[in-house]
Nucleic acid binder design. Sequence first.
DNA 1: TGTACATCAGTGAACGCGCGTTCACTGATGTAC
DNA 2: TGTACATCAGTGAACGCGCGTTCACTGATGTAC
Lengths: 208, 208
Amino acid sequence: MPYPAEHKQEIRKRILESARKLFNRNGLTEISIDQIMGDAGLTRGAFYSHFTNKEELYAEAITHFIRAESPPHWQSAALATQPRCQSLARAILDAYLSRDHLEDVEGSCPMIGLATDVARSSGATKAAYRQVLAMMAGIFAENMGPNALAASDHRSDPGADQQRALALVAMCVGGMVLARAIDDPAIADDLRTAAHPYGVALAGWSDL
Amino acid sequence: MPYPAEHKQEIRKRILESARKLFNRNGLTEISIDQIMGDAGLTRGAFYSHFTNKEELYAEAITHFIRAESPPHWQSAALATQPRCQSLARAILDAYLSRDHLEDVEGSCPMIGLATDVARSSGATKAAYRQVLAMMAGIFAENMGPNALAASDHRSDPGADQQRALALVAMCVGGMVLARAIDDPAIADDLRTAAHPYGVALAGWSDL
DNA sequence: TGTACATCAGTGAACGCGCGTTCACTGATGTAC
DNA sequence: TGTACATCAGTGAACGCGCGTTCACTGATGTAC
């Protein structure tokens, strides 16, 4: 074996890391293999000894976000202050709608920057996207507070919690997607900060 | 004058209509001028006697959605049944989160299909997008019901209504953007239908 | 009314460019002796 | 320990292709006489 076994895996990880970053900023189709390989410190030809084609990279780069060893800056700050399980979901909500997250385009959640790109893509890419959504919705669903909308006060069924979690994810992702698309910083901030208290209320984590 | 004055305007409108449709389905950069002009029944060369370049088309195609004479199918059904002003906003919410709207990719609100494309674009394109957002948020803000979160019961200030409207738009757009990106029809439907009752509650339009 | 004309919307070949992908090759590596 | 070798990760020129844009030309139109 001319190269150690870890070498190929390490290079592959470096390509995925560059792809994740550049995809987040520019979308799946706007960035070229040349640019990704250049960012990873390689040339284009090497790409095809790691991936069969560009499309295969889409799904892998998206799931690479949730497999990453070191969380991005916008996450780590919030998660460090809220180590307990119940408040972990709340900390994720806080971090997700933070200004740090809005500004960290390259390190942000791929659901924000790749939403419409994924909608136009196929199979494996959509499956990877669904995995990220399921992870976020799952954390929210498992830590739901009382449902202010439910008729009865006692614990609602898990299906309803899942629905509530999806509505919460929709508001978080939607707020961030819109904030990124709006060039008026005041409105972008309003989208972010307005979503927060209503998200907290929706989740039943009383803020007041 | 070799051609009537309306002729140029009519052709221009036809190009914008084709562009709006094809952009909605494929994004701003994935569709070529050839394809747009072909859809409008013309050849590529004619494009440049109507627009200076492709980028100029982006903004015009987006604002063309709110200037359109005949509303898309997913809108007209809901709006016909709710002609009064207070319930107009509610009808728009219903229509926006309807299955008709989810499936009508070409005729849908451009905020859904172009969100991340616009985030990567510049000046005029972002301004057009902001215009669509402002229109939707404005209609919601002007027809807000009582705020369940506010401490006092009496009418809250217009700034707070605007904030609430933005959170509502975020949930509607976010729900639809995610539903389009998810290939599991059950989850896509959950995103759409879960956002609805919480949107109604958020707006203070009691549903129960 | 009929004909010649000026206008300009629309055509389509051509341009330079960057893309995804291929492939013959180079050269750094661990192994065998 | 030192040298020859087999392996294969990485290189970079080349390919066909479609893109946005340009431009000399065509031909349908309303107008002037």
